[in-house]
Design a binder for these strands. Structure first.
Lengths: 238, 238
DNA sequence: CACCTCGACATTGCATACAATTTGACCACA
DNA sequence: TGTGGTCAAATTGTATGCAATGTCGAGGTG
């Protein structure tokens, strides 16, 4: 848990608010899998880790609860979310619905400069792919998600961008829980394929490739068992 | 502002939390247009209206901020959101993207019992349409939104349902600001058309009708002027 | 008369204190 | 041994106090 420190809270100007910074740090820790699903996030502990009062720690946890990364039980506390297979399916169903639209919108607005930034992002992905070790793997997962977020940003719709922010983060959690292989590696080539189609202005193809990509990610999950939940998340809390 | 009282806080069992109840009350007040865009929502005032401390009032406002119904400025306070025309377009673009998918998903799962409930809901809409007065108009707007929310619920995807919750609420705000006529009236027949297609299992037609419906709503807006914002929301704060 | 400065007031940001609730352990007892 | 009950520790829910920040008007000055 002390790993959180390295995601330094930039006291730099501009950080709107300390609870926002804490939210970011926790968010990164969760999607990086440094915080396992089910981990308890007590207000006091979070507060002392970041050297703030419970009030602001609580605000950060509330935000995370809102985006589904954390589940809060009344009078019991906040826990890193432990999505069920059903939730996982719904997350990917949502992405299948939204992302093709984002690709289509992005095609209309994208500039050569954007394309260049995308290429740089893909290089970053590739770089992490060739490295070994858990740190590189985490960086790879993050970079892979960032590709989708950049796309959302390029689409120029802040609402869809926010939705994708949530969906990508929750996807990371799901992959952490149900991921079978290092399938993110095969994701890389699919990203480049999408970008190629995007650059050529081939909207239909880009959208189709994106759906295919999402299908791929989901297909790599093992969503069979563990359906028996219900009695306080069925022991999986550990 | 005292109108809020009538949206009684059901102290009934189950209401998870007082801040949730306050959020609901404020949400309803906003989408009902009892609270105009730009209205300041001070923590102290909200707290005293609902007879809670600033702490819980603040939590409610934070939730509303997260779903975009309220905009919070640091050290200044919370205001009922005053969406720009651009935001309005993005809201409807998001709906055009998501709602056809919801319709498609709903077709797969809908039961005759659901259909019956939809019919009842449409009757409710019609009833309010035939009444006069601002109260009836508010009820009509709310009922119209509820149709879309029921559809989202029928689709069986809680994530999309949450997204729609936000989008419908924000749409109400936009319509309040930019709505030209009582166009919600023509919306009713379109709702029935969608439902008919849905009942027949005609997915393509239902989705097409839904897109058409959303286009209609947006076409009734006047999104031309008022683009010149920026200096602290250009006086519209009043 | 316009403009700038300064200071009182109001409101938010945050920390802390207290109350309510849950949890787990210990102990009595069948 | 297992069952149930009571109590103590820990944690969350809420209220409140203080500091920081922004607002607005009064008064002085060019």
């Amino acid at each position: 848990m002390t790993l959180l420190e390295n995601t330094a809270i930039s006291a730099d100007a501009g950080m709107e608010d300390r609870s926002l910074a804490i939210r970011e740090a926790l968010r990164n820790a969760i999607i990086d899998r440094r915080l396992a699903p089910g981990t308890k996030l007590s207000e006091a502990e979070v507060g002392s880790l970041f050297d703030v009062s419970r009030t602001v720690a609580r605000a950060a946890l509330q935000m995370l609860t809102f985006e589904g990364l954390v589940k809060t039980e009344r009078n019991r506390g906040a826990f890193v979310s432990n999505p069920s297979p059903e939730e996982a399916r719904q997350i990917f169903a949502s992405r299948r619905l939204i992302e093709p639209g984002i690709v289509a919108a992005a095609i209309e607005r994208i500039t050569p400069a954007d394309i260049a930034r995308f290429r740089a992002q893909l290089d970053e992905e590739a770089r992490h792919m060739n490295e070994r070790g858990p740190t590189a793997r985490r960086a790879e997962i993050k970079a892979s998600g960032d590709f989708h977020l950049m796309l959302a940003s390029a689409a120029g719709n802040v609402i869809l961008e926010k939705f994708m922010d949530e969906l990508v983060a929750r996807s990371s959690l799901v992959i952490a829980l149900y991921g079978r292989s290092g399938a993110s590696s095969c994701g890389h080539s699919e990203h480049t394929a999408v970008l190629d189609a995007l650059e050529k202005g081939d909207a239909d193809r880009a959208a189709a490739l994106m759906v295919h990509h999402i299908d791929h990610i989901e297909a790599d999950l093992d969503l069979q068992h563990r359906e028996g939940r219900g009695l306080r998340d069925a022991l999986t809390l550990v």
